[in-house]
């Protein structure tokens, strides 16, 4: 028997089912009602309902054949803007099934496109404005060039509140015949960091070990899925055991398939939770910021991260020397 992934199984089927984004939903509904809309820009953290809203809106706008009227693309997967352009061209030209007034192109992770690619995208948006509407999705709207922003109605998605995530999880647990203690739900929320997709994946993974979930079970999944070794690596660097730290970090990155950016994110989060003097803590955070920037600009992730660890070692030594 095939088992559906819960993020899909419980994907909102209508705009009303999109939780925690009342302002956004209200405005999207008015587009459905008037059967018209401008280009849209969805900005907000991951797992708060951007894709879900776009799909739910398309469903309400186009009815059962909505799939033929929405094209989903992911900017970070497509090789260059020319690919996006061709796909858009083919899609915009093919005749729509049903009587939708236009077609929707949903471009996820639009902030992964370079500035040049975004300018090309702007042209494409204009060329096909008669038959298509773009919905661009990104984490930070500031990474989208102003000429595109000015052509879009911007929607800001808020991080999901604790009670919303917990009520979504409770609903899934009930439908799936699971029980979860309050502490377990609390823990799921904390570990998800407000990302509903992550919360649902965590819950589904936990259901692989038990039907009666308490926080121990959730913890087991979290410590399996998230590299715990990062804390160890930071400690080694702070203790001045540089070579061991360097080796440890490569191991974590290779073992977990972390990208450089994922690694620096983990490092930054860990540092915030560490029991070290605040002045040192903020110096380390500043170093994270600097090297996150260099990672984005540079080419060799290992060099940049090793440099960050070297910075940590020195900062911590200076700190103890006083």
């Amino acid at each position: 028997m095939a088992l559906e992934i819960w993020t899909e199984k419980y994907r909102p089927k209508s705009l009303d089912a999109v939780k925690g984004q009342d302002e956004v939903v209200k405005r999207l509904k008015s587009f459905v009602k008037s059967q018209n809309m401008p280009h849209l820009l969805f900005a907000g953290p991951s797992g708060v309902g951007k894709t879900a809203s776009a799909i739910a809106m398309a469903r309400e706008m186009f009815g059962e054949n909505y799939r033929d009227n929405i094209l989903e693309l992911n900017a970070s997967d497509e090789r260059g803007i020319s690919v996006v352009r061709n796909q858009v061209k083919d899609f915009a030209r093919s005749k729509s099934i049903g009587d939708g007034p236009f077609k929707i192109i949903y471009l996820d992770e639009a902030d992964a496109l370079t500035k040049e690619a975004q300018h090309a995208l702007r042209r494409t948006m204009e060329d096909y404005a008669g038959t298509t509407r773009f919905v661009l999705s990104c984490n930070y709207s500031s990474k989208i060039i102003p000429p595109i922003q000015s052509r879009c109605a911007v929607f800001r998605f808020k991080p999901l509140q604790k009670n919303i995530i917990i009520s979504i999880l409770k609903n899934i647990a009930q439908t799936e015949g699971l029980t979860a203690t309050d502490k377990a739900l609390e823990f799921l929320y904390l570990a998800s960091e407000g990302d509903c997709r992550k919360a649902e994946n965590l819950l589904q993974a936990t259901s692989a070990i038990t039907k009666n979930i308490d926080e121990k079970h959730v913890e087991e999944v979290v410590s399996f899925a998230e590299p715990q070794e990062v804390a160890g690596v930071i400690n080694l660097a702070l203790e001045g055991k540089y070579n061991a730290a360097k080796e440890g970090l490569s191991k974590v990155m290779i073992g977990h398939g972390l990208s450089g950016l994922d690694a620096v994110t983990q490092i930054q989060k860990q540092i915030w939770q560490m029991d070290i003097p605040d002045p040192l803590k903020i110096k380390l955070i500043r170093a994270c910021g600097e090297y996150e920037f260099r990672l984005v600009e540079g080419s060799n992730e290992f060099i940049q991260l090793n440099a960050l660890l070297a910075e940590f070692s020195l900062l911590s030594e200076n700190d103890t020397l006083g």
């Binding site: 993020t7 991951s46 992550k198 692989a208």
Partner: peptide
Amino acid sequence: KLHASARSLQRDFIPYFNFIEQKN
């Protein structure tokens, strides 16, 4: 099928699939 990019798969799904694979 999951409305996810390569990066998001690697980060948001694969660790959990691996857990399920190992435990169940």
